[in-house]
């Protein structure tokens, strides 16, 4: 059970979008952007409020890569591993990030909840390959050196 404030927030978001079944995705998107993840309890709660089967809501939430039931870090780094980025050595970028942030394929988020590292299949910016995003900010033509500088800068901003 989450704190009551979570449910009040969900109610607020639901009332913004209307209590209709088609509003499920925008509602859970808003919840996710509010908490940086989609708390499982809230998905069940929203499903109930909208009159959707819990299993159906879970089906929707797991279909889209974007939704996460795990809490994410403050900075979500998405490394593109689409064809264009891959041939321009996005793997090296990813490896560098794993090393810098002490993460792995199984561990996506740093202990201090500062960074979450994900790969995506294509960001649609192949001309800028290899590309990554930090939250909504795009970083083009990345190299392992630029990655180190970027992480150092973000860490510095936090102090």
């Amino acid at each position: 059970m989450l704190e009551q404030s979570y449910y009040s927030k969900a109610d607020e978001i639901i009332s913004q979008h209307g209590r209709t079944q088609k509003a499920l995705i925008p509602i859970i998107q808003d919840i996710q952007s509010c908490y940086r993840y989609l708390p499982a309890e809230l998905l069940s709660y929203v499903a109930k409020q909208l009159g959707i089967n819990e299993a159906k809501a879970y089906s929707v939430a797991t279909f889209y890569e974007n939704f996460s039931f795990e809490a994410k870090g403050k900075y979500v780094i998405r490394v593109c591993d689409g064809t264009a980025c891959h041939v321009r050595k996005s793997t090296l970028i990813l490896d560098k990030l794993y090393k810098e942030l002490n993460l792995s394929k199984e561990k996506h988020t740093t202990e201090d909840m500062l960074f979450t590292l994900e790969t995506v299949s294509c960001l649609g910016a192949c001309g800028l390959a290899p590309v990554l995003t930090v939250n909504d900010e795009v970083h083009a033509a990345m190299t392992p050196e630029k990655v180190s500088a970027l992480i150092a800068k973000l860490k510095e901003e936090e102090q």
Binding site: N53, A55, Y58, S59, F63
Partner: peptide, 9 residues
């Protein structure tokens, strides 16, 4: 009832 549904993709 909808006890089951597809999950993931």
């Amino acid at each position: 009832i909808g006890a089951i549904d597809f999950a993931f993709r």
